[in-house]
Amino acid sequence: MTDIVSEINPQVFDSNLPDIHKIEMLPLEPKYAATNFKLGAGFTTIFVLILVFLRLQPWLEWDETLLTVLTVVVSVLIAICLLFTIYKKLADPLKTYALREFDLSFQSGLFFRKKVTQPITRIQHIELKRGPIERKIGLATLQVFSAGGALHTFEIPGLELSKAQKIRQFILQHKDSVTHG
């Protein structure tokens, strides 16, 4: 590591800096990945069933060329759905998060690993988002907004509600926190 340090500027990098590479990342609730998979698989199955039904139903005549085009389009759609479900199945369990004293991190991705780190002092406001399914299984998504804009909203899904509330409380009570709600 010394060559890099000298390459840039000896004063800049302090070897005692806390290292984001050495954070202990915590897994999300196992329920999160499992439910996502069930949803994806269920959706794909229903989608396929509906299409098969439409294809085989006896009442309506299909135009020949239209039929071939539609078949191709539909197969591609189904393939995308399947791939997406499989990807989620593999990638969801790999999502991890960590809470340090001054920042939050979230890591995700199967082929492209991505670790986003949000310093608490730059947080503008926090939201707990709970859709109907999340409510049913007792999970919550923690959304953290910074001035980086809507594209860079920091999000940790699949947290147990009590844990999400605790994290929110931690951020709100943090001395660096400048949040208003």
Binding site: I20, F111, F112, R113, K114, K115, V116, T117, Q118, P119, R122, S146, A147, G148, G149, L151, H152, F154
Partner: peptide
């Protein structure tokens, strides 16, 4: 800096490379 992002594909990991981005209030 508002937020930092560290990205790495498996291929990049093997080569000991990574991509970083810094999110500022005026864009990343």
């Amino acid at each position: 800096v508002q937020q930092t992002v560290l990205k790495q594909s498996k291929f990049m990991k093997r080569r000991k490379l990574c991509s970083v981005s810094f999110v500022l209030a005026s864009g990343a």
